[in-house]
Design a binder for these strands. Structure first.
Lengths: 352, 352
DNA sequence: AAATAGATTGAAACGGGTTTCACATAATAG
DNA sequence: CTATTATGTGAAACCCGTTTCAATCTATTT
């Protein structure tokens, strides 16, 4: 029934008042006589009228919207990050617009242009930044946002030259923890599995791994595979173990994430190796399925939910309170979740 | 540097032309002298100016935005659905706004009001509809969208009274397939695990299960647990098997989804039962981890990606081509993915 | 040289709200 | 009973683009 596009003027004329009065009724707190308010309200109800938030925002210079840029939520890590961040933003009354990065495309000027055009109150950039093979300037595309004074918070390894609020997990230290854990359990030949040299979080982990191995005077068996999926894990293990004689084989694997660990475990079993007796394995992210692998997977919890929440809080502060243009980097500690895939005391400290 | 809020008028005055000319430069195809175009363009570049898409949309009566309403993407099924749908929408140049439902809250008038206020070009409602314990009208909140002639497409079991384009998986038939598969493998005592009577897709599966069991003259061992998580699966199995003597125990379990199956498998192993010898198990959704469980999980593929894509295509057609106000329901077939958790021929027809 | 067509450009209206300011009426004070 | 204040309401400006229409200036035709 109700007409195609209905405006405040339609309501006004039907109620025999001016648009100003309808606006007052909508805002609630102005002085309008009870009789008028009643009449206008009923007409609004009747037509299910809701004032356009854009016309509104146009005048008020704020649309209460924020943009999230993130990789696919098919990766449960980002799903958790997104869910928490989204929830916080919604609680604060913001609508969220979602933009995506892919493993091969980073945030380019085109997307940034769109973000600016949307007149967002803030932008949250979640990981997935690719170490550019393009001119390095491309990594700094988000800089334009800063120039336009659009609040920006990032959750990823800090990008040099991009001075904004940044939260990130200490990826390097998380790998170090893993190495030390395995070392303490008596492992000397440890392999690192997964990642891509183009990916900043991947290379950061890798660097941490190599450094910690060196510190402990451990010999490295090392495989470098461009991928973050279970398939990459399968292939990685196959390639890793094929050319190595049984005696020189690594006794433990650190996978770049739980997905890769999952694939690796399958391939290990397929090759007749038992976990953790023949091969210990450790993942990263503490994804929901970790307690349910066989054996349950030891991993590192990066607390993505927490990260998402604090990031949005900072973004809100910047968007609303006009906080001084501050920029800082905060590192979130990660915690090793010991389960059974490394042969550590079974059943102890098991979480979730 | 660049001023806080910069408008087309700022650009115009800096270039010494009128706003109309700047607008013409932006749109590209109008006749503007090369000299002027050049000058204006350089000033636009300098300030990273992008015209507000809202001021633009206000005039053009279309914002090229669509709203997605969905449950948490922490459920990989919805993550897949969302990712595919999002990609299609983005390809067509639309920005997507995300709203969430929770297991306990359905889409209420407040959210619908917001959607209307955002003047969206279309709305996609993805599952998660709760069979209301509230007045049944609440299920029909999206009806308001239809009244306002806002294109609506749903992906969930069809809601009576909500005449819109609807796509859904034939949940009932997918369970029937599972039952027949198990029956063909010689199982007679089959349990159904998981779901909540408040959830429409859950109850639909349950009904299908009961009906097919009756048709095959099978005795049912049945447990009804309000949940869709691995934890629910663990608890479900524990409760299911505890009170039953070994002889009367079911020999197979159909889990409402792969998550529940995952939990169930863990609990079965914990109780010393081996899969599939002591207990066959079958999941639903064909989530990424299914090939990696031990043994690999037989499940049903609902093709969420496909569902998401066709739904968005329809939505686009309605939003753009002013297609007649049509409404229909289309059922997508699901396919059984046979792996090893039911003891069927190992290695055959294995997918992914 | 005058007339006409064509290319550039600006003024102004519009879209849908909010808000300021002024005005009319009603209520209160003196 | 007039002077003052409070209350309810409308006209109009504003937010930031797009688009129509008319005006100017240049170039071509006769």
């Amino acid at each position: 029934m109700a007409g195609e596009k209905i405006t405040i003027y339609d309501i006004a004329s039907e109620a025999g008042v001016s648009a100003a009065t309808v606006s007052r009724v909508l805002s609630g707190y102005q002085n309008v006589s009870p009789a008028t308010r009643e009449r206008v309200t009923s007409i609004i109800e009747k037509h299910h009228f809701r004032p356009s938030s854009f016309a509104k925002g146009l005048f008020q210079q704020a649309f209460r919207m924020m943009g999230f840029i993130l990789p696919s939520v098919e990766n449960p890590y980002y799903a958790a990050l997104f869910t928490a961040a989204h929830e916080e933003a919604r609680k604060a009354g913001y609508t969220v617009l979602v933009y995506r990065t892919t493993p091969t495309e980073h945030v380019d000027e085109a997307v940034i242009g769109q973000l600016i055009a949307q007149r967002l109150d803030g932008v949250l950039l979640l990981g997935g930044i690719v170490e550019s093979t393009q001119p390095p300037g491309d990594l700094l595309a988000p800089l334009t946002l800063l120039q336009r004074h659009i609040p920006l918070v990032t959750i990823c390894p800090p990008i040099p030259g991009l001075d904004c609020i940044n939260f990130h997990s200490d990826l390097s230290s998380s790998v170090r923890q893993s190495v030390r854990h395995l070392h303490a359990l008596g492992h000397h030949r440890i392999a690192f599995l997964g990642g891509s040299y183009q990916n900043r979080s991947a290379s950061e982990r890798e660097l941490g791994f190599l450094d910690e191995m060196r510190k402990l005077n451990l010999s490295t068996v090392y495989y470098h595979e461009a991928g973050h999926t279970p398939e990459a894990g399968e292939l990685g293990v196959a390639r890793l173990l094929a050319p190595i004689s049984k005696e020189n084989q690594p006794t433990a694997i650190i996978a770049i994430n739980d997905l890769v660990a999952l694939g690796a475990m399958r391939q290990l079993k397929r090759m007749g190796l038992s976990i953790p007796q023949d091969m210990a394995i450790i993942g990263c992210d503490n994804q929901f399925f970790c307690p349910y692998t066989d054996p349950p997977l030891t991993t590192v919890d990066l607390r993505p939910g927490e990260l998402g929440r604090v990031a949005v809080h900072q973004l809100l502060a910047k968007a609303e309170k006009r906080v001084e243009d501050l920029s800082f980097t905060q590192i979130k500690e990660s915690t090793l979740i010991v389960r059974e895939s490394c042969g550590a005391k079974i059943g102890r400290r098991e979480i979730k």
